[in-house]
Design a protein around this nucleic acid. Structure first.
Lengths: 206, 206
DNA sequence: TGTATTTTCGACACAATGTCGTTAATATAA
DNA sequence: TTATATTAACGACATTGTGTCGAAAATACA
C-alpha cells in the first residue's frame, strides 16, 4: 500500500476509504455513469460537502483511486524484476516465470476492486492504465529475449501491444471467473499459450 | 449499411446522422464524459428537444450508433465466412486469410468512427461489442482447426479470449497510427504473430 | 487540556435534464 | 398539386445535481 497514508490524519484516511468503497459498490450495482456525488456520499455516510474537500468530482475520485492502486502494483512488480533480472525463457514452458506469478498474486490482493474496475464497461483510466503497465512488462521481456528487430516475426511495437492486450484479457477472464484457478495455474497457462501458441501440434513447423 | 434506413423519413435520417456526427466530433475534442446533450444538439444545429424525440440520453445515442455500426460489420463478416468456409491454416503464413483481410477492410470504411470509439478512454459498449464479434471470429477459427480440447495448449475459452483481445489491440494500434499500413500488410502480420509467435527462432522447439 | 484540522449543516446560484404545448417545416400519397 | 400526417423548432417549466460558502460541531494530536 501507499506508505504516505501513515502520516495522515486518520479521519482523512477513513473518509477517503469510505468514498472509494462506496464508489466500487455503486459501480458494481449501477455502473459508473449512473452514479452521482450525492449517491457516493450517501452510501459512504458522509456529507456531500466533505466529498469536495478531497476530490473535485466523481471522475477525480476514480482517477485518484486508480493511480494509488496501480502505483502499488508497479512498485511491487519492480521489486520482483530486480530480484529476477534473468529472463530465462529457454526453460520448461510449464514452470511459470516468477514475474508472471507475481502479477497474478498482486492482483488477487485487491481482487474486488480490480474486478469491478476492469469488467464494468464504462470505467475510464483503469484498464488503459493497467495495460500501460503490462506493455512495459512485455517490452522488458521481448527486448531481453530478442534485441534484434530482424529476428522478430512482426514489428516490435505491434508484438508488444499484441501480447499486452492478450495478457490483460486473460487477467480479466480470470477475475470474471472469480479466480477459480490459482495464480500459479494462470501464470503457467499464460506462459504456455504465449510460447507455444494455441495448438499442441503446431500446423507451422516453423 | 442498415437497410432499414431506406423506408425512413429523410428528415429522421438526417437528424440522426447529424447527431451521430456531432457526437463523434465532440468525443474526439473533449471526451465522452465532458459532453452534454446541449453540446451535441448545438453542434448538430438542432433543437435540444429534437434530441429527445430520438434518444433518451447521450448514452442511448452512443449505444444505438454502436449497435448499427457493429451490426453492419457482423453482416459483412458473415458473408465472407460463407464464401470461405475452409479454414486452411496449413498454407503459407505470409499469405493472409481472406477473413483476416476482410476484417481490416471493413473497419477502414468507417475508420473515423472506429478510431474515436476505440481509442477514447471512456467510450462504453463499443470496444466490448467489437471484442464479442472478434471472439466469435476466433472461436470459429480455433474450433475448425482443432476441435479436440486435448490438443490445445490451454483451455479453449482462455485461448479464444487471449487471441481476441490481441487482435483487437492490433486493430486499435493500426487506427492510432492512422492506418499507415495497408489492410493486407496488417492481416499478414497478424497471421504471422498468431501462428509463429514473436520470435523467428522460437526458443521452444515445440 | 488547548489548538488545529476535519466534518457537518443549511443555503445559495448555477447548469443540465427531461417534458410540455404550440407553431413551422417537410414528406408522402391521393 | 394539394391534403394530411409526420417531424422539427421554439420557449417555458419543474426537477435534479453541481460546486461553493460560512458557521458550528466533532475529532486528532501535541
Amino acid at each position: 500500500m501507499s506508505n504516505k497514508k501513515q502520516k495522515m490524519d486518520p479521519r482523512v484516511m477513513r473518509t477517503r476509504q469510505l468514498l472509494r468503497d462506496a464508489l466500487v459498490e455503486l459501480i458494481e450495482e449501477r455502473g459508473f455513469e449512473k452514479i452521482t456525488v450525492q449517491d457516493i456520499t450517501e452510501r459512504a455516510t458522509l456529507n456531500r460537502a466533505t466529498f469536495y474537500l478531497h476530490y473535485s468530482d466523481k471522475l477525480d475520485l476514480l482517477y485518484q483511486s486508480t493511480k494509488e492502486i496501480l502505483n502499488d502494483l508497479v512498485s511491487s512488480l519492480n521489486d520482483t524484476f530486480d530480484d529476477k533480472l534473468e529472463f530465462d525463457f529457454s526453460k520448461d514452458a510449464d514452470e511459470p516465470h516468477d514475474t508472471f506469478l507475481h502479477l497474478f498474486e498482486q492482483i488477487s490482493l485487491n481482487s474486488k476492486l480490480y474486478k469491478v474496475f476492469l469488467t464494468e464497461k464504462d470505467i475510464p483510466y483503469f484498464s488503459s492504465g493497467l495495460k500501460e503497465i503490462i506493455i512495459d512488462f512485455i517490452s522488458n521481456g521481448i527486448n531481453f529475449t530478442q534485441p534484434d528487430d530482424k529476428r522478430l516475426t512482426v514489428p516490435r511495437e505491434m508484438a508488444v501491444r499484441y501480447f499486452a492486450a492478450a495478457f490483460l484479457e486473460v487477467i480479466v477472464w480470470w477475475l470474471e471467473n472469480d479466480m477459480h484457478y490459482s495464480s500459479k495455474y494462470m501464470a503457467t497457462q499464460l506462459m504456455r499459450i504465449t510460447m507455444m501458441g494455441p495448438y499442441v501440434d503446431n500446423p507451422f513447423g516453423k
